[in-house]
């Protein structure tokens, strides 16, 4: 009995700690007062203002565009890296390739952002590309740090499954190109999907690297939100948090339901 009590106690405290701040934020998003923490009455006022805020809407659109493009490019290259490192023996300077594909994982984002910004400025001086900082430079930077995360996921999936399937296909005369598309790709599809999703969220959530590499007309959502809450509070950001939480909760519940119906089958 004592044990059960301790278990319920721990889980209650733990989950309250995780959810209390988020739920408070959602509750206060309905507060009809410019001063965020002083309750005046229930209203949808800040939701209305949020949906009329051009700056936030545009930033949201920019973020979605960069995140989906970045996730797609990073997934393609992450698969290439994962496949190369586990399946192709002759890679020039292999240890260097491993170093390149894994060290973005441990590199502090502030150093990554600084180095990319200085690189873009220098290459603009020397060859005139990129002509200015903007969505393209943010996209390139996001692809660069996301690739490593996707590559790790793909690599662990590829090294844990039975290579004999590929060898069997080879023995049966399938050409190597076909082996990848017909044998390997279907097996690692779940890893590809979770890699894409991770790269997408990494890009959507990134503030530091984007702040370094952005330029006029390329403000992502975190940049705009940060500029609003850096020095104070913003009731519109409360409303935005509530909407984002709602999207995440709905996504999580649908994944839970899909999983459960798959298990039942």
């Amino acid at each position: 009995m004592n044990k059960l009590f301790f278990k319920i106690f721990t889980l209650t405290i733990g989950f309250s700690f995780l959810y209390f701040p988020i739920l408070t934020l959602i509750a206060y998003s309905f507060n009809d007062n410019k001063r965020v923490m002083v309750w005046k009455g229930f209203s949808f006022r800040w939701y209305k203002e949020l949906f009329h805020n051009e700056q936030i809407l545009e930033a949201f659109y920019t973020s979605l565009k960069i995140a989906s493009l970045s996730a797609t490019f990073a997934t393609v290259m992450g698969v290439m890296i994962g496949f190369s490192l586990t399946r192709i023996s002759k890679i020039p300077a292999r240890p260097f390739f491993i170093f390149l594909s894994s060290s973005p994982l441990v590199m502090p984002e502030i150093i990554l952002g600084l180095s990319l910004l200085l690189f873009f400025i220098s290459s603009n001086h020397i060859i005139g590309f990129p002509s200015s900082k903007g969505q393209l430079t943010v996209l390139i930077s996001h692809i660069t740090f996301s690739v490593a995360f996707v590559a790790v996921i793909i690599q662990s999936r590829l090294s844990s499954y039975d290579k004999n399937i590929e060898e069997a296909a080879q023995d049966l005369g399938t050409i190597p190109n076909m082996i990848f598309w017909k044998v390997t790709a279907p097996v690692i599809l779940p890893a590809i999907l979770s890699g894409w999703l991770l790269a997408f969220t990494l890009s959507l959530d990134d503030l530091v690297v984007a702040s370094f590499t952005t330029g006029p007309g390329a403000n992502t959502l975190p940049i705009v939100v940060f500029s609003k809450v850096r020095l104070g509070l913003s009731p519109e950001v409360n409303a935005l948090s509530a909407i984002i939480m709602l999207i995440v909760i709905l996504a999580a519940i649908s994944i839970y339901l899909i999983n459960r119906s798959n298990i039942k089958k």
Binding site: Y19, P21, D205, L207, V229, V237, I244, M245, I255
Partner: peptide, 23 residues
Amino acid sequence: IMLIIPFWSSFLLRVYAWKVLLQ
């Protein structure tokens, strides 16, 4: 699922939540 929800939700907004709480 309840552990994954805060994991997915925006990092910046979770920091902001504490800024609101600690005012």
